[in-house]
Simulated assay, not measured.
Amino acid sequence: MSRRPPPPEAAEAFAAVYDRAAPASLAARAYRLPAPALAGYSTLADRAADGIRRAGAFGEPEQWRFDWSRPYSRDEWLDQLPTQGDHSRLPPADLAAALAGVGAAVDALGGGFTMEYTAVVVTAALSGDA
């Protein structure tokens, strides 16, 4: 699954928060990076499909892609944020500062924003010969 970056104004605000609160964290870099390319995930899916073919026990693999959006309120985003990346390794004071800053940034965006997601799936039916 690939989470695309939040809207540009949210990404900029979040990057500024992490630059202050946890400059050495993955999040400090993540909000400054370009959107993860789905091509990278497609490469992984292609490898999985090749492995399925080599196993010889399945029919032809198929790749499916699912795109969706999810709106987040301030509280919903803050509830799940500590589970992302290296947040669990931040010192408690740094995590608290990051959460406070991100919360303020989401408030400044009107109290919420929408994230875009994509999932790429490889599937194949078990062959009758197996």
Rank of each mutant, 00 (worst) to 15 (best):
M1I: 02
M1L: 06
S2L: 15
S2D: 11
R4F: 15
P5S: 06
P7W: 07
A10W: 10
A10M: 12
A10Q: 07
A11Y: 13
F14A: 05
A15Y: 08
R20F: 03
P23F: 09
P23N: 06
P23T: 06
A27S: 15
A27Q: 13
A27E: 10
R29K: 15
A30R: 14
Y31L: 08
R32V: 02
A37C: 07
A39D: 13
G40P: 01
Y41R: 13
S42H: 14
L44S: 08
D50W: 07
D50R: 14
I52V: 14
R54A: 15
A57Y: 04
E60P: 14
W68N: 04
S69R: 15
S69A: 13
R70I: 01
Y72W: 15
Y72K: 03
S73R: 10
R74P: 13
E76K: 09
W77M: 09
W77S: 04
D79S: 13
Q80G: 15
P82L: 02
D86K: 14
D86S: 10
L90S: 09
P91F: 08
P91K: 14
A93H: 11
A98P: 05
G101D: 00
G101W: 05
V102F: 00
A105S: 07
A108L: 05
G111M: 02
M115G: 02
E116D: 12
Y117C: 00
A125F: 09
A130T: 07
